[in-house]
């Protein structure tokens, strides 16, 4: 499966104007080429967002191979890296996002304490 950059953008255009900034989830997914790990990560993220943040999220997929400078600018080491740009503060999650609970915790959708109970 291929990730369509444009698809996400259109998605974003649909959601953005409707939501207030406080309620906006701005997520960046850094990948290095469209390898299986990147695809898995995107799919996992998409599923989680659809489930928990439906209608108020925006995912930007950034391919570092296409734009290497961003790795430097945004301090990216590991890929895939998911960065929660908004709401602040920034949060980083690395990996292919296959552990859903961890992603939820990382994004702050679930408390760490809650996570442990689960």
């Amino acid at each position: 499966m291929e990730i369509k950059h444009e698809k996400i953008k259109t998605n974003l255009q649909k959601i953005l104007p409707a939501k207030a900034s406080g309620d906006k989830w701005d997520l960046h997914l850094y990948i290095a080429g469209q390898n299986p790990k990147a695809v898995t990560a995107f799919n996992n993220l998409k599923l989680i967002c659809e489930e928990h943040l439906k209608g108020k999220y925006h995912i930007e997929v950034i391919d570092l191979l296409k734009n290497p400078q961003i790795a430097h600018d945004d301090h990216i080491l590991a890929v895939p890296t998911l960065v929660r740009k908004l709401p602040l503060p920034e949060r980083n999650i690395i990996g292919d996002l296959s552990n859903k609970e961890r992603v939820l915790a990382g994004l702050g959708l679930v408390d760490h304490s809650e996570l442990k109970l689960v």
Binding site: Y30, A32, G33, K37, T40, A41, N44, L64, L65, P68, Q69, A71, H72, H75, I76, L77, A78, V79, P80, T81, R91, N92, I93, I94, G95, D96, L97, S98, N99, K100, R102, V103, A105, G106
Partner: peptide, 26 residues
């Protein structure tokens, strides 16, 4: 300068250091 912040990174699933490679390469 590769800025690494301690204790702020959550891991979920497998990852690699391609980002570092890209930066060194660049």
């Amino acid at each position: 300068h590769i800025h690494v912040e301690r204790g702020e990174i959550e891991q979920s699933g497998e990852y690699d250091l391609e980002g570092l490679f890209i930066r060194i390469h660049l």
